[in-house]
Computed example of a mutant assay.
Amino acid sequence: VAACCTHPLDLAKVRLQTIAPTPGSPHPSTLSVLRMTIKESGFSSLYTGLSASVMRQMTYSLVRLGAYEQMKAQLSKDGPAPATHLFFAAMLAGAIGGFAGNPADILLVRMTSDFVRPPEKRYNYRNAVHGLVTLVKSEGPHSLFRGMGTNLTRAILMNVSQVYRYDLFKQILLRSRIPLIDYQMTDGLLLHTVSSITAGAVATTITAPADVLRSRLMAAAGTSHPLQVLTAALREEGPRFLFKGWTPAFIRLGPNTVLMFVFFEQLKKGWRALYPSDYLL
């Protein structure tokens, strides 16, 4: 649900990260990319690559969130788990999720960035399944692991800065009273929203460099090494390129994080009501 709501911003982020710089002209903004997309291909084109985004959620997000919740439940059986244990659990869950979601990540990057590529270099995947089959046929099974190193780095950073930080901010807010208004938060919608917005801001900033490198490696058709991409981009665009697409990334990740955790918390509450003996919840 969260991915479907924020997909146009994901599309803008990837296109900003992969557009080749034009000497003497300013880099396009988030708004200009969205406006150009609508002008050239219509409003529905903002949802180009949605099938890959859904596939990514059903692999990467499902595994990283599910694995972290399972580990947290096991670590908390005899009382609250130490923060360091949860930190390493988030790292491990992120790595597993990054591995599981790598093929869908490649498809998402390629499908959303196709528009800014020359026509003769476009992939023209009809949907995620067609893209997956075409990718394996044309580039071999090993192509499913393109950009794995940067993707695992990003996935680990994302899980630690988003999921772990969300839990951390929730605990801090539950234990603290808000100054000036002297308000004590309870475990409800406001707490989930504030914690997820804060976690989203932290996650966007920490994962930005790895996210840009990942997008560029996955968008490329030939064999590229992360160090080659990094040095070439630093030489041609300067260090600011590492934070390209930060604005749409935050505009997307903020609401995405809020929606994801709010829906997640409500689904957990509903599951608890149906299955109160399930210790994993």
Rank of each mutant, 00 (worst) to 15 (best):
F241D: 03
S143M: 02
G149L: 09
G24A: 01
I96M: 13
H142S: 14
G147L: 07
R165Y: 12
V160C: 14
V63P: 04
I206D: 01
M91C: 13
A81H: 11
Y123L: 09
I251F: 08
A52I: 02
S113L: 10
F261D: 02
M91W: 03
D187R: 01
G200Y: 03
G66K: 13
P82V: 03
L280F: 14
Q70K: 13
I181L: 00
H142I: 10
L157F: 10
A12K: 04
F115L: 14
S51G: 03
F243I: 15
T18W: 06
G147H: 09
L108R: 14
G42R: 12
F99A: 14
L227N: 09
S277Q: 12
N159M: 12
R175K: 12
H225I: 09
F261Q: 02
R56T: 10
S113W: 05
S196D: 01
A12S: 12
D211W: 09
I251M: 04
E139V: 06
R272W: 15
L174A: 02
L173I: 00
M58Y: 08
M218E: 03
S176F: 02
S195V: 00
T30E: 04
G245I: 00
I96N: 04
T186V: 11
Y123T: 03
M111F: 08
V160K: 01
G98A: 05
L259A: 05
D167I: 07
A210E: 03
I172A: 06
T198K: 00
S41N: 10
Q171G: 14
P179A: 15
A249N: 12
L135I: 09
S51P: 03
P239M: 12
S32H: 11
V258I: 07
K170H: 00
P82Y: 01
T204S: 15
P118S: 08
L34P: 04
F87K: 00
L132H: 07
N151L: 06
G131L: 03
C4H: 11
L280K: 15
Q57T: 08
R56P: 02
D10G: 11
R64L: 14
T207Q: 04
L259C: 09
N151E: 04
A219Q: 14
D211F: 13
A83L: 09
E69D: 15
R146C: 06
